[in-house]
């Protein structure tokens, strides 16, 4: 087994050069498919539905990129990754981009050699406990057994939090969200901790969500965003501006309902025209065609639509926009201008 890992590591290194040297855009086009790394299964963010079709907030972003680049939101190969496998998968070129509630940190950006293209969800780490435990604050968790996904920032925050508050805990390392859910429900751990959004999504899938609460403390900043490999700036630009297009579309009122009408002819708002390619040549600058952003928005709607459809208040996950509202509405979601 060790030997395979070693050869694997060598091939990883071997592949990596091939990939980072060549243009990812060309590879994706030649392949006709976008390889997008997602979670192994977290309803609302990325999970196959009853028909085996991947659905979710992060999945929707993969589809938008595929639509922009390949003209087909279905031309995506979803690669499930765990907290531990995701970075190797990206570094090795097995996936072209990663959209898997991944926190933007300096180490990942600088030392692990990735590029975060932006933030699509401002989050923080929380704790999920059963109501009957009668715990009201994370600081009451002294001596508790806590399930924690390995290879995540949350694992490090957890250690810091308990150290800073001088209380003890017993970590139970787990590999995937499903495993954590199973252990938590069986009572093998008192609390489950991860990003609050992930907790909300996990709780929503329980038989009786009302028996569980997410504790009020948020112990960290977890800006989650899509990322690509370091070194291919053209590809990075495409992924970044696809995200910005979705965000700007919401800000400027471009929705999947009115996009056909708005893109038919140049309208009165020049920025809308530039995004939809009825004016200027922004698509060309990115190495794409004029309609790229239009297709990306049509794939699953603008940022707000993606949010509402997958994790918003009308879904079982019921996340409020909060920090993730548009800047005009008092949130942090903000796209640089299209010009």
């Amino acid at each position: 087994m060790k030997k395979t890992v070693f050869l694997g590591a060598l091939t990883v290194a071997g592949l990596a050069a091939g990939v980072s040297a060549a243009a990812t855009l060309e590879d994706v086009k030649a392949r006709g498919k976008l390889n997008c790394g997602v979670v192994t299964g977290l309803v609302g963010f990325g999970a196959p539905d009853a028909n085996g079709e991947w659905q979710g907030f992060d999945v929707g972003f993969c589809r938008a990129v595929a639509a922009a680049v390949l003209g087909d939101p279905k031309a995506v190969e979803f690669v499930p990754t765990t907290g531990k496998t995701r970075f190797t998968a990206l570094a090795s070129g097995e996936i072209d981009m990663l959209a898997r509630n991944t926190t933007w940190t300096l180490t990942r950006d600088v030392d692990l050699k990735f590029e975060f293209v932006g933030v699509n969800y401002y989050d923080g780490q929380g704790f999920l406990v059963t109501k009957d435990m009668g715990v009201s604050s994370a600081k009451d968790l002294d001596g508790a057994t806590i399930c924690i996904q390995t290879g995540t920032t949350t694992e490090l925050n957890l250690a810091d939090f308990f150290r800073a508050n001088n209380i003890s805990y017993e970590p139970v390392p787990i590999e995937t969200n499903a495993e954590g859910q199973q252990q938590y429900l069986a009572g093998a751990c008192d609390a489950y901790t991860t990003d609050a959004s992930g907790l909300a999504a996990t709780r929503a899938s329980f038989e009786d969500p009302s028996a569980h609460v997410v504790l009020p403390e948020i112990i960290s900043k977890e800006p989650l965003g899509p990322l690509v490999r370091h070194g291919d700036n053209e590809w990075e630009d495409i992924v970044r501006w696809t995200l910005n297009a979705l965000i700007s579309a919401e800000e400027l009122g471009i929705t999947s309902a009115n996009i056909g009408e708005l893109s038919a002819a140049p309208g009165s708002n020049p920025e809308v025209n530039r995004i939809l390619g009825t004016e200027g040549n922004l698509g060309e600058m990115l190495g794409l065609d004029a309609d790229w952003a239009k297709r990306a928005i049509m794939a699953g709607g603008n940022y707000g639509e993606l949010f509402a459809k997958n994790i918003g208040e009308s879904t079982p996950i019921a996340l409020a926009r909060g920090l993730n509202a548009q800047w005009k509405d008092g949130g942090l979601i903000y796209s640089p201008p299209f010009r």
Partner: peptide, 29 residues
């Protein structure tokens, strides 16, 4: 099963948090 043996520490969390796949796997071998 999440038993923290050397594959779980050096070859798991350490490798993952530092991104030093090659070095960690070599040491592990």
């Amino acid at each position: 099963v999440g038993y923290m043996d050397i594959t779980g520490t050096l070859g798991g969390i350490t490798m993952n948090q530092t991104g030093r796949e090659l070095e960690a796997v070599l040491l592990l071998m």
